[in-house]
Amino acid sequence: MLRFEDVTLRYDDGPVLAGFDLAVAPGELVVLLGPSGCGKTSLLRLACGLAAPSSGRVVNGFGRTAVVFQEPRLLPWWPALDNVAFALAAQGVTRATARHRARALLDRFGFTDADTRKRPAALSGGMQSRVAIARALVVRPDLVLMDEPFAALDVGLRRDLQDLVRAAVTETGLAALFVTHDVTEAVRLADRLVVLSARPARIVHDERNQPRDEPAAMFRAAAALLDRPVVRAALLAPAAG
């Protein structure tokens, strides 16, 4: 269980979060949907310990937490394989085992042997994102935090990668906190949809969701969500900064 308990986070230019409460249960994919700059990224940073709350508590009871950042954040000097194996090496896994497990996962992600030996600059944007996701999943996390990981990709690629993430959650029962500002992405992926207001972020809407793949159903669900006045007010308000 990941719990935000009455969390306040203040930066120099004002509060990002004020009295924020949220719990993520094992096995559920929670999508945080909110306007740009509302504090979604800050929530993930709090969850993985890169930031500390100004007041309140963040309790992360999950054994192993992995993060997929907005950018792939790959080590440019090392091939794809070593980038994935890096996360395992960090956990104390021996080099041979780490590389073996990394290769197996990259293989499932559609990498040829030659691809795994390429450095990030020689990979396309979509491939780089796959490496970043593989680096997160290879440690078999209990919770994965994802910060708009596909924002920079085109629609087709994004669908592929969403499927990859959805499959990982369904197959392994890991929990995920997925941040996006794309409503269709949210209804396509989420077990639970949480809509945040503009800064300071508070929850304006929280509902169970059935992940949908069929485009018409997906857009209908997105439209239904946007039909709610609170959601519309939060998501369609002019961006703050």
Partner: peptide, 13 residues
């Protein structure tokens, strides 16, 4: 710094 953060998050020594 972004790479350093990544290393911190994966728990690299």
């Amino acid at each position: 710094q972004k790479l350093s953060e990544m290393a911190r998050v994966v728990g690299a020594s």
